[in-house]
Design a protein around this nucleic acid. Structure first.
Length: 540
RNA sequence: GCGCCUGUAGCUCAGUUGGAUAGAGCAUCGGACUUCUAAUCCGAGGGUCGGGGGUUCGAAUCCCUCCAGGCGCGCCA
């Protein structure tokens, strides 16, 4: 629907241009109207025309109103000051309703992505310990983004990058070795960087007979532990209902010579230079604070080197958009990686890095400190067991990723109204409940939509008609949390309808129309929740 | 010291890329269950959008500056 408005506005602009008016180079985005009773979509285009042609905003809006040609059956327009307010007519609301009815769960069929290949990489936690709550936030976001982008027509792959090379794995092996020695009664001394969490103790106990021969082979133990931990991570993600399509291992990049390849190419392009025996990326030339080492004095490549190779491969695999979801503590890394890609002649602007801020847990009104190495933290697994996967996803996805999140466990556990998840779930469950009592099935309805005349009914229809618009905008902005907000609004309008109108027991045709309204509402709620990774509740 | 993020109602947060009178939920107070689930609905109170400057028809949103909180500033990953 909003497409039709935008096209009509564009045509009108062309007309005005032919008459010698100055017009803006691009259309300002259409907005949903904030004020009640002023229609459904608003454009502030007249303000722009007004300042470009030095005429009063009113004149601009009235002229556009006069000149614009809209499908009158579907959309009407009104000029109000410098605004153009567009309203969806009842008949276009019914049209959307019919569409949802017909397309069912596949509504809306959108193709803004046009089949472009997108990769969404998230979590990518080092296999040196269990996933913690912060990883969970990234997982929620990444998985929702993957669903969302798929929904609007992109070809999406979700990816997990496994750093199984280097010092961390060595430290992991040493830590496990220490735990084994501890079991044999030896007195052990931790290094500062060792992983002191209970999970390695458990691992040592579990595999003691198998590992005791190898207790001095830290290298072997490191690989062993990383493998086991990755397996646990995969299980955690599964119970969090997060799907990863592919795993890429850092060591394979080395084995396949991709790291050398990338470095050679950087050399060819003059992007790296030798100094103090090491090789440096000249990232300051592209705005970074300092140049960065890619090959150490001893000849070993740094983490940055393999990461450059990794992202180079992503582009070479034909992804047009690459989304990386990182913990905010990696923010300093964005610039150097992007500058390397730029040196390689790759479209660095198509790498979208989303930084996710920390999560702190509140329990009993107090913060629980988090840290992996220290070993004290609440794992994602614990959190899911305590509050449930659905609640976690919903809470993570009501906030913007760039704000620090205080996750109140006691609140999330409450079944009560404090918890916004249940508000949306309740709307879904109520609809299910109506159908349990009704002698009708959702797909056996042939409603006369025109019978839906009450303001509450039209408000639900209006909200439903906005769903495609919400999805497209959320996808473009890479902001799944807009869907969460939308679902709450939709649930509000449904609850109001439920409170003011009856469904069952009404005259047959009206009942059928209202049942149909319930059906399409339920489908959109289910569709939105599915994107968020939340299972709709059948009953409360 | 430098860089990134944040600061909106008592609390937790939205705010559609600069638009109309800044919105929800919780908490507080007051109403609505003999009817499809009251985990709901209706109403009330509550705001110098961290402070101060600026940009313009118009700023919570952009710029400058100060204040506060978080996170970074390795030839670790």
């Amino acid at each position: 629907m909003e497409k039709k408005i935008e096209e009509a506005l564009k045509r009108t602009l062309e007309k005005l241009k032919d008459r010698g008016w100055d017009i803006p180079s691009s259309l300002p985005p259409l907005q949903t109207t904030r004020l009640k009773g002023k229609g459904d979509f608003t454009s502030n285009l007249p303000f722009l025309i007004s300042s470009l042609n030095s005429i009063p905003p009113q004149e601009a809006s009235q002229t556009i109103q006069k000149e614009i040609s809209l499908p009158e059956q579907e959309i009407t327009v009104e000029a109000a000051g410098g605004y153009l307010n567009f309203s969806l007519t009842p008949s276009s609301l019914y049209k959307v309703a019919r569409e949802i009815m017909r397309q069912g769960d596949s509504f809306p069929s959108l193709n803004t992505g046009q089949g472009k290949k997108v990769q969404v990489e998230f979590v990518s936690a080092n296999p040196t310990g269990p996933l913690h709550v912060g990883h969970g936030r990234g997982a929620s976001l990444g998985s929702a983004l993957a669903h969302l982008l798929r929904k609007v027509g992109y070809q999406v792959e979700s990816e997990y990058y496994v750093n199984n090379v280097g010092r961390q794995i060595a430290l992991l092996g040493e830590s496990l070795a220490l735990r084994l020695k501890e079991m044999e009664g030896e007195k052990i001394e931790w290094g500062e960087d060792h992983y002191k969490g209970e999970y390695l103790k458990n691992m040592a106990e579990k595999y003691f007979t198998q590992l005791k021969e190898k207790k001095d082979d830290a290298n072997f133990l490191g690989q062993f532990a990383a493998e086991k931990l990755l397996k646990e991570i995969k299980e955690d993600l599964k119970s969090f209902e997060v799907e990863i399509d592919s795993y890429t291992f850092e060591n394979t990049l080395y084995q396949q010579g991709k790291v050398i390849e990338a470095i050679e190419e950087l050399k060819t392009k003059g992007a790296i230079y030798e100094k103090d025996g090491a090789w440096w990326l000249a990232s300051t030339r592209l705005g970074d604070e300092k140049d960065r080492v890619v090959i150490r004095k001893d000849g070993r490549p740094t983490y940055l080197a393999s990461d450059i190779a990794y992202h180079r491969e992503k582009f070479r695999k034909g992804y047009e958009i690459i989304v990386d979801i990182w913990g905010a503590d990696h923010h300093g890394y964005v610039k150097r990686l992007k500058s390397a890609l730029q040196f390689l002649g790759l479209p660095a602007e198509n790498l979208k890095v989303i930084l996710v801020q920390m999560v702190s847990l509140i329990k009993g009104g107090e913060k629980i400190p988090l840290s992996t190495r220290g070993g004290k933290f609440l794992s994602l697994k614990d959190l899911i067991e305590e509050v449930g996967s659905d609640v976690c996803h919903f809470i993570f996805l009501t906030r913007r990723p760039d704000t620090q999140l205080e996750f109140d466990i006691d609140l999330a556990k409450k079944d009560a109204p404090e918890n916004p998840v249940y508000y949306v779930q309740y709307a879904h469950a109520r609809i299910r409940s109506i159908f349990n009592k009704a002698e009708r099935k959702e797909d056996s309805l042939s409603p006369a939509w025109e019978l839906l005349q009450a303001p509450e009914e039209k408000e639900v229809l209006r909200k439903l008609a906005l769903y495609p618009w919400v999805l497209e905008n959320a996808a473009e902005a890479l902001e799944p949390h807009r869907i969460t907000g939308y679902l709450q609004e939709l649930a509000t309008s449904f609850h109001k309808f439920y409170d003011t109108q009856r469904v069952l027991g009404e005259e047959e045709s009206l009942m059928e129309a209202r049942l149909a309204l319930c059906t399409i509402t339920r489908r959109v709620i289910a569709s939105g929740l599915k994107i968020l990774g939340v299972k709709p509740k059948e009953r409360m």
